[in-house]
Design a protein around this nucleic acid. Structure first.
Length: 930
RNA sequence: GGGGGAGUAGCUCAGGUGGUCAGAGCGCGUCCCUGAUAAGGACGAGGUCAGUGGUUCGAGUCCACUCUCCCCCA
């Protein structure tokens, strides 16, 4: 006979197969329909605020994996903090202006910015930026991220732009903005200055030449030489085209320099590089004539080999002796260190190039019009003709490239706008000390960067951005840079957007009656715009300070660790420049993904993984779990096998929840729940373990150890619930009468476990947690409509029964010994299914006591066997070695009950039920509805 | 070259103040179950804790150096 009808084999609609790619969009639609963001905010109305300020991603394409990780981590933090009782508004933002969008317009619309008027160009840029805001918004939502997606902040909005201009005005008012001639990275393809953080280093092959600069003055140590002796300083450079900009030669003050004679001429090089240099230029053999420290050469003049002007010997600590000659060609218009040295010595700063990188007339007739680094050969030829070229070769070295067009950049002295970092440095370092940095080394890292960073070049020669609100007098050329004037511009921009700067004449943008000191009333507008890093760096001023639901400072900034150099820093500089404290209390940095070979994922390497594709194959929940699989604070590997592993872990969680849901199908918490005191020891143990797990997982979350959280959760579900507790429960759940105390006790425990597990999962496995929650609500419809409206589980101290825990420590040892014994007996052929086994357990004091206290029937349930007998170890007879626990297994006596499948003595003894044991016979006879 | 990280089983990770600390989960192999079934259970194999020297009675655990890798900067 089939006894299935007399068993509690229940059903759930919760499917085993997740099919997340299809199910998640349905859940999303539900969230949207119930307006989950608003619901959650309302639930926390009046609660303390916790504010995570969204660092704006750049809206110029589909989101990539790093952005997906970033937003999901933010979402996890917000959901966790909300469940912990905080009101967590989340206003997402986008960075929308700047060169990447301009390039996007050229690429996607096939336009050339030189052919399009500024306003039309800006309109195109705006259109493209808005397109990607819309695209990315949907992609972030698809990942399950909760936020005020319909009201994001956008750097291109008039209110944002106006606030940014206002902030600029304040910085001007504080005297922190200046305009100056400085070498900056210049991309002559993009025709713009680039900030340090817009540079990428890549290998480049460059010429490497040795040039002899004839000394005009005579060093003291060579006073004895005949007046007509020819003495040269030997320099080495990889940028011949900067020779026209040479105005000095730098020596290391402490290093020793040698004067070497070859063929009647004298050459000066550093001692450590002498042999190497003379070999390289073929001036052998040579003879040492004299030596002196670099400092003694200071101020001597050499003659520029191409022009009739001097090149002066200067001293600089940065001159190293690991390469070159120890005499460093110094072109102040083409290098930052060179520039700084030049300022110190008063050397001329020459940069004979135009915006397109072509030599101007200042470089002489032979070079004018030629593009700088394509003119290397010309310069080399000229040097050769001048008889000063000693050698020419080539070298592969790391060289700065433009972050957008990937072409090599140059250093070029230009007029730029700067933020005076020196005056802010101390304040910034103080704020860094006060903030919390996760991981901790983030503090050291950013402090080092802040301590060393030079003044910040904030201007760009572009159109798509916020104008630098400055004016110039048309008659005397004086700069008009005043806080009140800027405030006036800001008020105009607030109404009409930054477009007004291009739409109107200067006279319309200035406050009425503005007059220059020279008496003139006609002005022209500055044409530079602000760097996009000013845009995002102002976000705390433009967003946190203005949105009523937000506040300054934010509790958390959370970005990829490249932002130590970028947004974390620019936000801090702007705050300091405005006289504010740091805009963040805590800063969390996360790492990046690498492929199986440890290489960073990048478009160029062609090893990128599209988050959307992962969503389509595995689902957003698997991706979200993957983000917590490894420690996000360092680099993370992304491989197919790891994704598979995470997908397996997901299935385990899902199936365990499904098992619990199934066996709760006939459970009504308000009627059937068993009071804790009356629950079985096994059930109380499960609840005890759950409380411990809650405590540990909460600690992990608070410490940002999300990967520990992940592994803790999974290990608990797999190794304790699934492998032990739920397995032990099956007999009870299936075979006992539906309303039996033992079964209801088990269900009560399952109910608590399922509720807490689902709550714990909610921040990370967001979709599935709510999917489970929906089914939980069928059991208890009084629960809120989404698990997102729930509180984080609190540890029930009263369930942390230390005596119970100690007992189960012993019992788990027994269980380990029992399963091993069962395995041995099974392999010897005693039985195939351990359920049909009999165990003899030999133990001592504490273990014995634990088993006795649990009771025979409960112990049988715990070990999942048909019968067992507990003995004192002394009864074991044969030598037990040094162990205090012996378990043996054999086939149990009696016949197999056809209902519960245990081998029991009572089978065949019960009248009317020849195939059943006593318990099953009783159950069947009382089975409801039979 | 400078600054910041990391290196424990195939994978992802645990291993306060040095002495059962060589662990977990997954994966893998073998077996069981078929009343969680495109599920579930059991057992098993796998690591000289990157390397080399120290300190110590004793070191993944402290010190020095080396190697490899990642990030940022020049």
């Amino acid at each position: 006979m089939d006894y299935k009808r007399t068993l509690n084999l229940l059903h759930t609609d919760f499917p085993m197969r997740a099919n997340l790619p299809e199910r998640e969009p349905e859940i999303l639609a539900r969230w949207e329909q119930m307006d989950i963001y608003r619901l959650v905010r309302e639930r926390r109305r009046g609660a303390p605020r916790w504010i995570l300020h969204d660092g704006p991603p750049y809206a110029n394409g589909n989101i990539h994996l790093g952005q997906a990780l970033n937003k999901v981590l933010k979402d996890i933090a917000i959901k966790y903090k909300t469940m912990r009782g905080y009101d967590c508004p989340f206003v997402p933002g986008w960075d929308t202006q700047g060169i990447p969008t301009e390039q996007g317009v050229e690429r996607e619309y096939g336009l050339d910015r030189h052919d399009v008027p500024a306003l039309a160009w800006r309109a195109k840029c705006r259109e493209l930026a808005m397109k990607y805001v819309a695209v990315q918004r949907e992609q972030f939502k698809r990942l399950g991220c909760r936020g005020d997606w319909e009201h994001p902040y956008l750097t291109l909005s008039p209110e944002y732009q106006a606030r940014q201009i206002e902030a600029f005005g304040k910085m001007v008012g504080r005297g922190l903005i200046y305009r100056g001639l400085r070498p900056v990275y210049w991309c002559y393809h993009c025709e713009t200055a680039l900030a340090d953080d817009e540079i990428e280093y890549a290998d480049k092959t460059s010429p490497a030449i040795y040039v002899a600069f004839p000394l005009v003055d005579r060093p003291a140590i060579l006073a004895d030489l005949p007046p007509n002796a020819q003495v040269f300083l030997v320099i080495w450079t990889t940028t011949p085209w900067t020779i026209p900009g040479n105005t000095g030669i730098a020596l290391n003050p402490g290093a020793t320099y040698l004067v070497l004679r070859h063929n009647g001429r004298f050459y000066i090089v550093a001692e450590e590089l002498a042999e190497q240099t003379m070999q390289a230029v073929g001036l052998t053999p040579f003879e040492k004539v004299a030596e002196a420290p670099g400092a003694t050469f200071e101020g001597l003049r050499a003659r520029h080999p191409l022009y009739d002007r001097p090149s002066t010997v200067v001293l600089a600590d940065y001159v190293t002796l690991d390469q070159g000659t120890g005499c460093v060609h110094t072109a102040p218009g083409h290098g930052l260190e060179d520039y700084q040295t030049a300022v110190r010595y008063g050397l001329p700063i020459i940069s004979p190039l135009d915006d397109q990188g072509r030599f101007t007339e200042q470089a002489g007739a032979a070079l004018v019009g030629k593009v700088c680094d394509q003119a290397n050969d010309d310069v080399v030829r000229m040097l050769s003709q001048a008889g000063v070229l000693l050698a020419a070769g080539s070298i592969v070295h790391s060289y700065p490239h433009c972050w957008r067009c990937d072409k090599p950049v140059i250093y070029r002295a230009t007029n730029q706008w700067f933020l005076d970092i020196d005056r802010l440095r101390e304040a910034a370092l103080g704020e860094i000390e006060k903030a919390e940095w996760i991981p901790q080394w983030g503090r050291t890292r950013i402090a080092g960067m802040v301590a060393a960073r030079p003044d910040w070049c904030i201007s760009r020669q572009r159109v798509w951005g916020v104008p630098i609100p400055a004016f110039y007098c048309e008659s005397c050329g004086d700069l008009v840079l005043r806080e009140d004037v800027i405030a006036h511009v800001a008020s105009l921009v607030a109404q009409a957007g930054a477009e007004i700067w291009w739409e109107r004449e200067a006279s319309d943008l200035l406050p009425p009656g503005t007059t220059c000191a020279c008496g003139s009333t006609t002005f022209r507008k500055e044409t530079d715009i602000m760097s996009v890093w000013i845009d995002s760096g102002c976000s705390h001023y433009c967003v946190l300070r203005t949105h009523p639901e937000l506040g300054f400072p934010a509790d958390l900034y959370l970005e990829g660790d490249d932002q130590y150099q970028c947004w974390f820093q620019t936000s801090l500089w702007i705050a300091c420049a405005l006289g504010d404290p740091a805009p963040f209390r805590t800063v969390v940095g996360h790492g990046f993904f690498v492929d199986e070979t440890g290489q960073k994922l990048s478009k160029r390497k062609g090893n990128i993984k599209d988050p959307a594709e992962i969503c389509n194959r595995y689902g957003a929940d698997v991706l979200r779990m993957f983000f917590t699989y490894a420690d996000f604070r360092s680099k993370m590997f992304l491989t197919e096998s790891i994704l598979e592993q995470v997908a397996d872990a997901y299935r385990r969680l899902r199936n365990t929840a499904r098992f619990m849901l199934t066996n709760l199908a006939d459970f009504n918490p308000s009627h059937d729940a068993v009071p804790y005191e009356e629950m079985s020891a096994l059930d109380r143990w499960a609840l005890l373990r759950m409380q411990q797990v809650i405590a540990r997982m909460t600690r992990a979350f608070d410490a940002w150890d999300l990967h520990l959280f992940h592994h803790e959760l999974h290990a608990f579900v797999a190794a304790e619930l699934s492998a032990i507790y739920l397995d032990c429960l099956k007999d009870t759940l299936y075979t006992e009468l539906p309303d039996s105390r033992l079964r209801r006790s088990a269900q009560t425990a399952l109910w608590h476990l399922l509720l807490d597990l689902t709550r714990l999962m909610a921040p990370i496995v967001a979709f599935t947690a709510d999917e489970i929650w929906e089914h939980i609500r069928r059991i208890d419809p009084s629960l809120p409509v989404s698990v997102q409206l729930e509180d984080w589980p609190a540890v029930r101290e009263e369930w942390l029964d230390p005596h119970l825990e100690e007992r189960f420590e012993h019992l788990l040892r027994v269980r380990d010994a029992a399963t091993a014994a069962l395995d041995r007996a099974k392999k010897e052929g005693a039985f195939t299914n351990p359920l049909e086994a009999h165990l003899d357990i030999y133990a001592t004091d504490a273990v014995l006591a634990a088993m006795e206290e649990l009771g025979q029937e409960e112990l049988k349930r715990f070990l999942i066997v048909s019968s067992l007998k507990v003995h004192d170890l002394r009864e074991a007879g044969q030598a037990t070695g040094d162990t205090d626990l012996v378990v043996t297994a054999r086939l149990a006596d009696g016949e197999k009950c056809q209902r519960c499948w245990q081998r029991l003595a009572s089978v065949g003894e019960v009248a009317g039920y020849p195939e059943l044991c006593q318990r099953c016979a009783d159950c069947v006879s009382q089975w409801p509805g039979l």
